Amino acid sequence: MLDGAFKGEGMPSDDDMVDFDGFQNLRLLSLFNSDLTGQMPIWLSKLKNIEILRLDFNQITRPIPEDIYNAAKLEEIPLPLNSLHGVISDKIVNLTKLAILDLYFNHFGGKHPLNLGKLSKLKFLTFDFNNLEGALPPSLMNCTNLVELCLGYNNLEGDIFMLDFSRLSQLTKLDLKSNSFTGTVPSLVSHNLLKEFDALYNNLEGPIPTGTQLQSFNASTFEGNPKLCGAPLPNKCIPNKDMDADNKNNKDEGNGHHQLPWFYIIIVYLGFILGFW
């Protein structure tokens, strides 16, 4: 661990490490809070046995080199509070042992990686404060060991009700705030383990599921969604009168109570009388 050891220095480039062939048994490389500048070098991918690569709280720029995804033994990649950008490559699925992917407060853009669902050991996925866009892929629900899923402050959208959150049975924290998610709050997101939930400033609507621990959260959790209603929010849900009327009509039809207008009955009788005459 070399945390804080190279304050303000530049990250050694690939040219500087052209003959790099050492540290092949290195499992942990931590340069936390070193204020390092420059880009993430490709030579890091030559550390074949690296399991933890910690470069958070630096000033590293540019995209993540795709060769990094060849370090198949990587289990933890904490990279928050840098200036990394570009898209997150689908090659990330090569890191089959990955348990922690923390990209908090960078400048990543593009769509959420479509194949993250293949990372079955993933436990902590943090994308807060980036520029990700588009809908969440349903395959993300295949990450059934997720403990924390943090997606706040991006440009994500789509109907979250269509995602089967019930599969994330280990989830304790779900952060969706400040995106453009639509749909209703899925009741299946509620289970005993969920301790933190934040849907602040989205476009969610409808009643908050009752009989769950969602009612125990502070109302601020749901602020910025004017079409949401029900506890813990102060605004009550108003029954849909049109829907109630339709339900009543359907019920009447189901019971065989069909009511014909009187003029139809009169016309039938007149026709019978005239025809008989």
Rank of each mutant, 00 (worst) to 15 (best):
E148Q: 14
L136W: 06
A72Y: 12
P113S: 06
S45W: 06
S190P: 04
V87R: 07
W262Y: 08
G254I: 09
Q59D: 13
D198C: 03
G230K: 03
T182P: 11
K118I: 04
H258L: 12
N49K: 13
S180P: 03
M40C: 00
T37H: 14
E223R: 02
I266R: 10
D67V: 05
G109R: 05
L95D: 09
P226G: 02
L193H: 10
P209A: 03
V93G: 01
E253K: 10
K251G: 14
D128T: 13
L200M: 13
F105K: 12
P209K: 01
S166R: 08
D246L: 12
S13K: 07
D252Y: 12
D67P: 01
C143W: 01
K248G: 06
N250P: 03
N225T: 15
L74S: 01
H85E: 09
L125P: 04
T144A: 10
F108A: 00
G4L: 06
C237T: 09
V189S: 15
K121W: 08
F129H: 12
L163Y: 09
P41H: 01
P186S: 11
P239T: 11
D56H: 11
F181M: 00
I88G: 05
A199M: 04
K73R: 12
P138Y: 03
F161R: 08
C229V: 00
Q259N: 10
G110N: 00
N247W: 10
V18P: 01
D90Y: 00
F272S: 11
G158H: 08
H85D: 09
Y201N: 14
F263S: 13
N70K: 08
I64F: 08
E76Q: 15
A5C: 14
L114V: 09
L174V: 08
L101S: 10
K118M: 11
F165Q: 02
I100A: 09
K248I: 14
L228P: 00
L260G: 09
V87I: 10
N145L: 14
K241F: 12
L74H: 05
D19N: 10
F32I: 06
I267W: 10
S34E: 02
A245L: 09
N49Y: 06
F6G: 03
D90H: 06
F181V: 00
S45Y: 09
P65S: 08
D14I: 05
K173F: 10
D244F: 11
I42L: 08
I160M: 02
D164I: 07
Q39N: 08
R54E: 15
R27C: 01
F272N: 03
P232A: 06
S166L: 03
N115E: 10
G152H: 01
F217L: 05
N82Q: 03
L101C: 12
W43R: 04
R62K: 15
N154F: 01
P113F: 06
K195S: 15
N249D: 14
F124G: 05
K97N: 15
V268Y: 10
F124L: 07
T184Y: 04
L149D: 00
